[in-house]
Nucleic acid binder design. Structure first.
Lengths: 129, 129
DNA sequence: TATTGTTATACTCTATAACTATA
DNA sequence: TATAGTTATAGAGTATAACAATA
């Protein structure tokens, strides 16, 4: 457990630092990364209450935009702007440092790690509340 | 990277839920767990600014206490009270659910995972600022 | 002078509850 | 009546800057 905790902390430390270098908080970076896909419905994906999304999107400002849904006018689809997508590219590029640790593992090591991590957290359904 | 992100998110989700069940936030739980050892110096270990420790310790209230250092009167050593240690025990017991995923891995799988995670984040020196 | 801890301040993230506009 | 998003409010975590006590 200790080592898993350290690996998790290390990952988030790297992500936070990479995000900060490009004017984003970790949460903002995570949201923008999720928005690579047009955002399925809303963001139960961020494991937070719906009321947070409003402020989160507000603070992202130009990096994101709200678009009215044509089918259901209650829905506002959040999409990343070009500025937002560029920020994601930069953050992900900065995460290369972390990825490189992966790269240094041999092919078998990587496959093994994938499999073991997958067995630890087979599901990714983060419930809100 | 995706799978590492999911594993990290899964770990913290479990920890947050376990902590909440016992009246703690994730950060408070992490701090209390660190305090199993009498706290080396202060808490650069939490990867946060010194000014946060004050409020963090305040909010932990009875689960923690400040003790004056005999050698250097500027220093206040933070130690977990029995109530604090009990809270840690309960949280860690609740994390068994997560640990069990480990237990289901065979012996070799566990050793391999330890080694691979260790190679990803060999150091745990979290710099403040 | 330098360091430890605190206070003051400000911003982000979070949840709950009440509200609106749609459906 | 129910749902999607918002607003208002409150609390927790964070950093910066200024400060007191001690070294």
């Amino acid at each position: 457990m200790e080592r898993l905790a350290r690996a998790a902390a290390g990952y988030y430390r790297d992500l936070t630092a990479a995000a900060a270098r490009h004017g984003l908080t970790m949460t903002q970076a995570k949201m923008l990364i999720l928005l690579r896909q047009p955002l399925p419905a809303l963001a139960g994906r961020l494991a937070c209450d719906a009321s947070n999304i409003t402020g989160l999107v507000d603070r992202l400002e130009a990096r994101v935009s709200r678009e009215a849904d044509t089918a259901d006018r209650r829905i506002k689809n959040v999409v990343a702007t070009e500025e937002g997508r560029e920020a994601v590219r930069l953050v992900r590029a900065d995460m290369r440092g972390t990825s490189e640790a992966f790269a240094r593992l041999d092919e078998e090591g990587r496959r093994t790690l994938y499999e073991l991590l997958g067995r630890l957290h087979p599901e990714d359904t983060q419930k809100t509340t």
